[in-house]
Amino acid sequence: MAPSQIAHDIEPIPVATRRRPGRSGAMSHTSMGLIIAIVSCAAFGTSGSFAKALLGSGWTPVTAVAARISIAALALAIPTAMALRGRWHVLRDNIKPIVLYGIFGVAGCQLFYFNAVTHVSVGVALLIEYLAPMLLVGWAWARYGRTPRRLTIAGTAAAIVGLLFVLDVFNGFSVDPIGIAWALGAALCLTVYFVIAGDEESELPPIALAGGGMSVGAVILLAMCALGVQPVSVSTADVTFAGSQMPFWVPVLGLALIAAALAYATGIYAARALGTTVASFISLLEVLFAVAFAWMFVGEAPTLVQVVGGVFIVGGVVLVRLDESRHAESFGPVVAAEHDAEIERWLDDVRPTRDEECVTR
């Protein structure tokens, strides 16, 4: 899909005219959001396989991520400018969430993940990263004293059991602890990504948030390369991918255009179209796509024990999300808002103060 077409397709819906459940046309809007969410999951799922090919040929994590995000930022520059034409003030007013999205959702999340896959398999790294909802539950409990309900506790327990299986602790903890630490860092950054991407009140077009975040992330990563914060190495040698040798720029462009530009732009649109809870449910498909792609392209077949652990982790996240959804439906918007108060307070700090001009446009 051409960048200009992406910009046209995911133009934001004004607040005053957004579809609500029960109104004419709501089904088509939701269906489109679901399709785009699945596309985003598949695109994100390719990143681990592309990264493994580069890392195995002499690239270091920071250089691979810097190349990925920098090229993606260039690819999104024109559609971002088109989406913001005539209203550049929106970009200025949303500078704080863009910067935070670039630091955590783009640079941080990918750098931690790429470092993780140098020590553990793609599937293990991604399963640990997707413990993000559990981390959010624990943070809300510690920070605001909100005791988790029984279904959330059951989901968290299932995810912890699954993590034990994925790490294979029953056979002497065979997974590299350094890789686990990097993957947990990616999980923390993923939590921030979901919070910012799912802000339905934002005037910022999804493509502009993706493009702006990519630009911020690129600056940070290129600065890290220049300063030598992490080992810097690139290679122009052919890489092994999908059982054959191919030029190094093939996985580089795959990382940048498929696993970054397309994945992030469609992911933001899906989070706004479906809501943060539903979008995070669908995002679990990324784990399945990533494991399947890693198996096909780089020969990383998960063990039976890790498959069982993956089922427990995904099941645990589903239970937590079901609990959130049930809570919101049973007690209405007032209690639902209180349930997610910690997220709203965080968003209030990064969301700009503005009038209701978006409603009257």
Score class of each variant (00 low, 15 high):
residue 150 R to P: 06
residue 203 E to P: 11
residue 151 L to M: 15
residue 142 A to H: 04
residue 145 G to A: 07
residue 186 A to C: 14
residue 153 I to P: 03
residue 153 I to L: 13
residue 162 G to H: 01
residue 152 T to G: 05
residue 183 A to S: 12
residue 182 W to F: 15
residue 202 S to Y: 06
residue 169 V to W: 02
residue 201 E to W: 08
residue 144 Y to A: 15
residue 182 W to C: 10
residue 153 I to K: 02
residue 161 V to F: 09
residue 154 A to L: 13
residue 203 E to D: 14
residue 163 L to P: 13
residue 196 I to G: 06
residue 199 D to I: 05
residue 194 F to L: 03
residue 171 N to D: 10
residue 175 V to M: 03
residue 196 I to H: 04
residue 193 Y to W: 15
residue 147 T to E: 14
residue 177 P to R: 07
residue 195 V to T: 13
residue 186 A to N: 06
residue 168 D to R: 08
residue 173 F to L: 13
residue 149 R to M: 07
residue 147 T to A: 13
residue 143 R to L: 07
residue 177 P to W: 04
residue 190 L to F: 15
residue 199 D to V: 06
residue 162 G to T: 03
residue 189 C to E: 00
residue 173 F to W: 14
residue 161 V to H: 05
residue 143 R to Y: 06
residue 183 A to Q: 11
residue 173 F to P: 15
residue 140 A to R: 06
residue 202 S to V: 10
residue 142 A to G: 01
residue 138 G to V: 11
residue 181 A to P: 00
residue 143 R to M: 10
residue 194 F to Q: 09
residue 174 S to F: 04
residue 171 N to C: 10
residue 183 A to G: 02
residue 138 G to C: 13
residue 190 L to P: 03
residue 167 L to S: 09
residue 154 A to G: 14
residue 140 A to P: 01
residue 163 L to A: 07
residue 163 L to I: 13
residue 169 V to T: 09
residue 140 A to L: 01
residue 173 F to M: 14
residue 171 N to W: 05
residue 189 C to N: 03
residue 179 G to Y: 00
residue 164 L to H: 01
residue 180 I to G: 01
residue 187 A to Q: 06
residue 170 F to M: 12
residue 158 A to G: 08
residue 187 A to P: 04
residue 161 V to I: 11
residue 191 T to D: 11
residue 141 W to I: 10
residue 183 A to R: 01
residue 178 I to H: 06
residue 185 G to E: 11
residue 157 A to H: 07
residue 190 L to T: 03
residue 155 G to S: 11
residue 143 R to H: 10
residue 152 T to I: 09
residue 164 L to S: 14
residue 173 F to K: 06
residue 169 V to N: 07
residue 157 A to K: 02
residue 140 A to Y: 00
residue 199 D to M: 03
residue 171 N to K: 07
residue 184 L to F: 12
residue 194 F to W: 12
residue 169 V to M: 09
residue 147 T to W: 12
residue 161 V to E: 03
residue 197 A to T: 02
residue 168 D to F: 04
residue 155 G to T: 04
residue 138 G to K: 05
residue 190 L to A: 03
residue 140 A to Q: 13
residue 203 E to R: 11
residue 152 T to Q: 10
residue 143 R to F: 00
residue 201 E to P: 10
residue 193 Y to D: 13
residue 146 R to A: 12
residue 191 T to Q: 14
residue 148 P to W: 08
residue 180 I to S: 00
residue 186 A to P: 13
residue 170 F to P: 06
residue 141 W to R: 08
residue 203 E to G: 11
residue 194 F to N: 04
residue 201 E to M: 12
residue 146 R to C: 05
residue 151 L to R: 07
residue 187 A to G: 08
residue 175 V to G: 00
residue 154 A to N: 06
residue 153 I to E: 08
residue 163 L to H: 05
residue 139 W to L: 14
residue 167 L to F: 05
residue 148 P to C: 00
residue 169 V to K: 02
residue 188 L to E: 00
residue 164 L to Y: 09
residue 149 R to H: 09
residue 176 D to L: 07
residue 173 F to A: 15
residue 164 L to E: 01
residue 194 F to G: 01
residue 144 Y to D: 14
residue 198 G to D: 04
residue 146 R to H: 15
residue 146 R to K: 15
residue 178 I to M: 11
residue 182 W to S: 09
residue 198 G to P: 09
residue 158 A to E: 01
residue 151 L to V: 15
residue 186 A to G: 14
residue 160 I to Q: 04
residue 189 C to D: 04
residue 173 F to Q: 09
residue 161 V to C: 07
residue 142 A to S: 09
residue 165 F to V: 03
residue 166 V to D: 10
